[in-house]
Amino acid sequence: MRHFANWGILGLTLIFLIGPFVIIILAGASAGPNLAFPPEGLSLKWYAKVFTIESFRASFVLSMALAVFGTITALVLGIPAAYALNRYDLPGAETIRTIVAAPIIVPGIIVGLALLRYVVVPMNVTVTVALFMAHTALVLPYAVRVVSSSMHNLRADMEEAAVLLGCSRMQAFTKVVLPNIRGGVLAAFILGFVTSFNQVPVSLFLSGPGVRTLPIDMLAYMEITFDPSIAALSALLAFMSLAIVFVAERLLGFSRYV
Protein backbone atom coordinates (compact mmCIF):
# COMPACT_ATOMS: atom_id res chain seq x y z
CA MET A 1 0.00 0.00 0.00
CA ARG A 2 2.72 2.45 0.99
CA HIS A 3 4.67 1.33 -2.02
CA PHE A 4 1.78 2.26 -4.20
CA ALA A 5 1.43 5.73 -2.66
CA ASN A 6 5.18 6.27 -3.02
CA TRP A 7 5.13 5.53 -6.71
CA GLY A 8 1.97 7.57 -7.16
CA ILE A 9 3.60 10.67 -5.73
CA LEU A 10 6.81 10.09 -7.68
CA GLY A 11 4.91 9.36 -10.86
CA LEU A 12 2.95 12.60 -10.76
CA THR A 13 6.03 14.62 -9.84
CA LEU A 14 8.01 13.07 -12.66
CA ILE A 15 5.25 13.65 -15.19
CA PHE A 16 5.20 17.31 -14.21
CA LEU A 17 8.98 17.54 -14.42
CA ILE A 18 9.64 15.35 -17.44
CA GLY A 19 6.49 15.97 -19.47
CA PRO A 20 7.72 19.19 -21.02
CA PHE A 21 10.96 17.43 -21.92
CA VAL A 22 9.12 14.69 -23.80
CA ILE A 23 7.15 17.35 -25.61
CA ILE A 24 10.37 19.12 -26.57
CA ILE A 25 11.90 15.90 -27.95
CA LEU A 26 8.81 15.18 -30.01
CA ALA A 27 8.33 18.78 -31.11
CA GLY A 28 11.91 18.68 -32.35
CA ALA A 29 11.07 15.61 -34.41
CA SER A 30 8.24 17.37 -36.21
CA ALA A 31 8.05 17.33 -39.98
CA GLY A 32 6.23 20.66 -39.99
CA PRO A 33 7.72 24.14 -39.83
CA ASN A 34 6.40 25.08 -36.37
CA LEU A 35 6.90 24.09 -32.78
CA ALA A 36 3.79 22.01 -32.15
CA PHE A 37 2.55 19.11 -30.07
CA PRO A 38 1.50 16.63 -31.22
CA PRO A 39 4.01 17.19 -34.05
CA GLU A 40 2.81 17.46 -37.63
CA GLY A 41 4.35 14.19 -38.84
CA LEU A 42 7.72 12.81 -37.79
CA SER A 43 11.10 13.61 -39.24
CA LEU A 44 14.66 14.08 -38.08
CA LYS A 45 15.32 17.06 -40.33
CA TRP A 46 15.40 19.58 -37.46
CA TYR A 47 17.84 17.42 -35.53
CA ALA A 48 20.01 17.37 -38.63
CA LYS A 49 19.66 21.10 -39.12
CA VAL A 50 21.12 21.84 -35.68
CA PHE A 51 24.50 20.56 -36.85
CA THR A 52 24.50 22.76 -39.92
CA ILE A 53 24.18 25.98 -37.94
CA GLU A 54 27.73 27.22 -37.69
CA SER A 55 27.38 29.66 -34.82
CA PHE A 56 25.97 26.95 -32.55
CA ARG A 57 29.24 25.05 -32.78
CA ALA A 58 31.37 27.96 -31.59
CA SER A 59 28.99 28.94 -28.84
CA PHE A 60 28.70 25.31 -27.71
CA VAL A 61 32.47 25.13 -27.26
CA LEU A 62 32.50 28.38 -25.31
CA SER A 63 29.64 27.34 -23.05
CA MET A 64 31.21 23.96 -22.45
CA ALA A 65 34.57 25.50 -21.52
CA LEU A 66 32.91 28.03 -19.22
CA ALA A 67 30.82 25.41 -17.49
CA VAL A 68 33.66 22.93 -16.97
CA PHE A 69 36.50 25.31 -16.04
CA GLY A 70 34.24 27.71 -14.16
CA THR A 71 32.81 24.92 -12.04
CA ILE A 72 36.21 23.35 -11.37
CA THR A 73 37.58 26.72 -10.29
CA ALA A 74 34.53 27.25 -8.09
CA LEU A 75 35.11 23.86 -6.47
CA VAL A 76 38.81 24.56 -5.96
CA LEU A 77 37.80 27.73 -4.13
CA GLY A 78 34.63 26.37 -2.60
CA ILE A 79 35.61 23.05 -1.02
CA PRO A 80 38.26 24.56 1.31
CA ALA A 81 35.83 27.34 2.18
CA ALA A 82 33.04 24.90 2.98
CA TYR A 83 35.45 22.83 5.03
CA ALA A 84 36.74 25.84 6.98
CA LEU A 85 33.22 27.11 7.63
CA ASN A 86 32.22 23.76 9.05
CA ARG A 87 35.30 22.83 11.01
CA TYR A 88 36.76 26.05 12.32
CA ASP A 89 35.44 28.59 14.73
CA LEU A 90 36.07 31.44 12.30
CA PRO A 91 35.78 35.10 13.10
CA GLY A 92 33.21 36.54 10.68
CA ALA A 93 32.10 33.11 9.49
CA GLU A 94 28.60 34.42 8.83
CA THR A 95 29.98 37.30 6.76
CA ILE A 96 32.08 34.95 4.67
CA ARG A 97 29.08 32.69 4.17
CA THR A 98 26.96 35.63 3.05
CA ILE A 99 29.62 37.01 0.71
CA VAL A 100 30.14 33.66 -0.96
CA ALA A 101 26.41 33.06 -1.27
CA ALA A 102 25.69 36.55 -2.57
CA PRO A 103 25.96 35.87 -6.32
CA ILE A 104 22.90 33.65 -6.13
CA ILE A 105 20.53 36.37 -5.04
CA VAL A 106 21.70 39.19 -7.27
CA PRO A 107 19.54 39.38 -10.39
CA GLY A 108 21.59 38.18 -13.32
CA ILE A 109 20.97 41.14 -15.51
CA ILE A 110 22.46 43.45 -12.87
CA VAL A 111 25.52 41.22 -12.63
CA GLY A 112 26.08 41.25 -16.36
CA LEU A 113 25.60 44.97 -16.59
CA ALA A 114 27.81 45.71 -13.58
CA LEU A 115 30.65 43.58 -14.93
CA LEU A 116 30.36 45.16 -18.34
CA ARG A 117 30.31 48.72 -17.06
CA TYR A 118 32.84 48.50 -14.25
CA VAL A 119 35.15 45.62 -15.14
CA VAL A 120 35.21 44.84 -18.85
CA VAL A 121 35.31 48.41 -20.08
CA PRO A 122 37.50 50.30 -17.59
CA MET A 123 39.94 47.45 -16.98
CA ASN A 124 40.11 46.37 -20.58
CA VAL A 125 39.29 42.78 -19.68
CA THR A 126 38.17 40.59 -22.58
CA VAL A 127 34.58 39.42 -22.62
CA THR A 128 35.69 35.79 -22.37
CA VAL A 129 37.56 36.43 -19.15
CA ALA A 130 34.63 38.40 -17.75
CA LEU A 131 32.33 35.52 -18.62
CA PHE A 132 34.70 33.10 -16.90
CA MET A 133 34.74 35.30 -13.79
CA ALA A 134 31.00 35.73 -13.73
CA HIS A 135 30.30 32.05 -14.23
CA THR A 136 32.79 31.01 -11.54
CA ALA A 137 31.28 33.48 -9.07
CA LEU A 138 27.81 32.23 -9.92
CA VAL A 139 28.70 28.60 -9.37
CA LEU A 140 30.63 29.27 -6.15
CA PRO A 141 27.51 29.49 -3.93
CA TYR A 142 26.36 26.09 -5.15
CA ALA A 143 29.80 24.62 -4.55
CA VAL A 144 30.03 25.97 -1.01
CA ARG A 145 26.46 25.27 -0.01
CA VAL A 146 26.06 21.78 -1.39
CA VAL A 147 29.47 20.63 -0.18
CA SER A 148 28.83 22.32 3.13
CA SER A 149 25.50 20.58 3.49
CA SER A 150 27.05 17.17 2.89
CA MET A 151 29.84 18.00 5.34
CA HIS A 152 27.42 19.24 7.95
CA ASN A 153 26.15 15.81 8.82
CA LEU A 154 29.58 14.23 8.80
CA ARG A 155 30.69 13.98 12.38
CA ALA A 156 33.85 15.90 13.14
CA ASP A 157 34.97 13.42 15.74
CA MET A 158 35.82 10.83 13.06
CA GLU A 159 38.35 13.24 11.66
CA GLU A 160 39.62 14.14 15.10
CA ALA A 161 40.00 10.45 15.78
CA ALA A 162 42.04 10.08 12.60
CA VAL A 163 44.33 12.89 13.73
CA LEU A 164 44.68 11.32 17.16
CA LEU A 165 45.58 8.04 15.50
CA GLY A 166 48.50 9.73 13.79
CA CYS A 167 47.16 11.00 10.48
CA SER A 168 48.28 14.44 9.39
CA ARG A 169 45.50 16.99 8.92
CA MET A 170 45.80 16.68 5.18
CA GLN A 171 45.63 12.88 5.41
CA ALA A 172 42.62 13.12 7.66
CA PHE A 173 40.97 15.32 5.09
CA THR A 174 41.72 13.10 2.12
CA LYS A 175 41.07 9.81 3.92
CA VAL A 176 38.07 10.69 6.03
CA VAL A 177 36.38 13.83 4.76
CA LEU A 178 36.80 13.64 1.02
CA PRO A 179 35.42 10.10 0.53
CA ASN A 180 32.42 11.05 2.61
CA ILE A 181 31.61 14.25 0.74
CA ARG A 182 32.31 12.80 -2.68
CA GLY A 183 28.60 12.72 -3.46
CA GLY A 184 28.21 16.32 -2.39
CA VAL A 185 31.14 17.41 -4.55
CA LEU A 186 29.73 15.58 -7.52
CA ALA A 187 26.28 17.03 -6.90
CA ALA A 188 27.85 20.48 -6.65
CA PHE A 189 29.72 19.92 -9.89
CA ILE A 190 26.61 18.85 -11.75
CA LEU A 191 24.52 21.68 -10.31
CA GLY A 192 27.28 24.16 -11.09
CA PHE A 193 27.74 22.81 -14.58
CA VAL A 194 24.08 23.12 -15.51
CA THR A 195 23.73 26.51 -13.84
CA SER A 196 26.62 27.82 -15.83
CA PHE A 197 25.69 26.08 -19.05
CA ASN A 198 22.11 27.37 -19.04
CA GLN A 199 22.85 30.82 -17.68
CA VAL A 200 21.07 33.53 -19.65
CA PRO A 201 20.72 36.93 -17.96
CA VAL A 202 24.33 37.30 -16.87
CA SER A 203 25.67 36.42 -20.28
CA LEU A 204 23.21 38.68 -22.08
CA PHE A 205 25.42 41.72 -21.70
CA LEU A 206 28.65 39.75 -21.60
CA SER A 207 28.90 38.81 -25.19
CA GLY A 208 31.19 40.34 -27.71
CA PRO A 209 31.80 40.10 -31.42
CA GLY A 210 32.13 36.40 -32.14
CA VAL A 211 31.94 35.48 -28.45
CA ARG A 212 28.55 34.28 -27.34
CA THR A 213 27.34 31.53 -25.04
CA LEU A 214 25.04 28.85 -26.38
CA PRO A 215 21.83 29.90 -24.58
CA ILE A 216 22.28 33.47 -25.79
CA ASP A 217 22.86 32.14 -29.27
CA MET A 218 19.68 30.06 -28.98
CA LEU A 219 17.74 33.07 -27.78
CA ALA A 220 19.07 35.14 -30.64
CA TYR A 221 18.09 32.38 -33.05
CA MET A 222 14.60 32.36 -31.60
CA GLU A 223 14.21 36.06 -32.12
CA ILE A 224 14.27 35.30 -35.81
CA THR A 225 12.44 32.03 -36.11
CA PHE A 226 10.58 29.62 -33.95
CA ASP A 227 11.28 26.54 -36.03
CA PRO A 228 11.69 23.23 -34.15
CA SER A 229 15.48 23.21 -34.40
CA ILE A 230 15.71 24.90 -30.99
CA ALA A 231 13.62 22.09 -29.53
CA ALA A 232 15.88 19.57 -31.25
CA LEU A 233 19.01 21.28 -29.94
CA SER A 234 17.58 21.42 -26.41
CA ALA A 235 16.79 17.72 -26.56
CA LEU A 236 20.32 16.91 -27.77
CA LEU A 237 21.85 19.01 -24.98
CA ALA A 238 19.67 17.29 -22.42
CA PHE A 239 20.79 13.89 -23.70
CA MET A 240 24.38 15.03 -23.42
CA SER A 241 23.84 16.07 -19.80
CA LEU A 242 22.03 12.83 -19.13
CA ALA A 243 25.09 10.99 -20.40
CA ILE A 244 27.26 12.96 -17.98
CA VAL A 245 25.03 12.02 -15.05
CA PHE A 246 25.00 8.41 -16.23
CA VAL A 247 28.79 8.26 -16.41
CA ALA A 248 29.03 9.92 -13.00
CA GLU A 249 26.70 7.28 -11.64
CA ARG A 250 28.74 4.47 -13.17
CA LEU A 251 32.14 5.76 -12.10
CA LEU A 252 31.36 7.09 -8.68
CA GLY A 253 28.04 5.62 -7.66
CA PHE A 254 26.33 8.99 -7.72
CA SER A 255 23.06 7.81 -6.20
CA ARG A 256 24.76 6.30 -3.16
CA TYR A 257 25.90 9.73 -2.14
CA VAL A 258 23.17 12.07 -3.25
Binding site: L62, A65, F69, I72, T73, T126, V127, T128, V129, F132, P209, G210, V211, A220, Y221, E223, I224
Partner: peptide, 27 residues
Protein backbone atom coordinates in the same frame (compact mmCIF):
# COMPACT_ATOMS: atom_id res chain seq x y z
CA UNK B 1 42.43 27.98 -17.09
CA UNK B 2 43.00 31.70 -17.10
CA UNK B 3 45.69 31.22 -19.67
CA UNK B 4 43.34 29.18 -21.84
CA UNK B 5 40.56 31.72 -21.59
CA UNK B 6 42.91 34.57 -22.38
CA UNK B 7 44.07 32.69 -25.43
CA UNK B 8 40.48 32.15 -26.50
CA UNK B 9 39.82 35.85 -26.11
CA UNK B 10 42.70 36.98 -28.23
CA UNK B 11 42.36 34.40 -30.99
CA UNK B 12 39.59 36.40 -32.60
CA UNK B 13 41.82 39.44 -32.92
CA UNK B 14 44.47 37.77 -35.02
CA UNK B 15 44.00 39.42 -38.45
CA UNK B 16 45.73 42.63 -39.52
CA UNK B 17 42.75 44.71 -40.50
CA UNK B 18 39.46 44.02 -38.83
CA UNK B 19 36.08 45.65 -39.20
CA UNK B 20 33.72 45.02 -36.33
CA UNK B 21 30.06 45.49 -37.08
CA UNK B 22 26.94 45.23 -34.95
CA UNK B 23 23.84 43.97 -36.72
CA UNK B 24 20.43 42.41 -36.10
CA UNK B 25 20.73 38.68 -35.53
CA UNK B 26 18.50 37.69 -38.36
CA UNK B 27 19.51 36.11 -41.71
Amino acid sequence: ILAVSCAMGSAAMAADRTLTISVYSFA
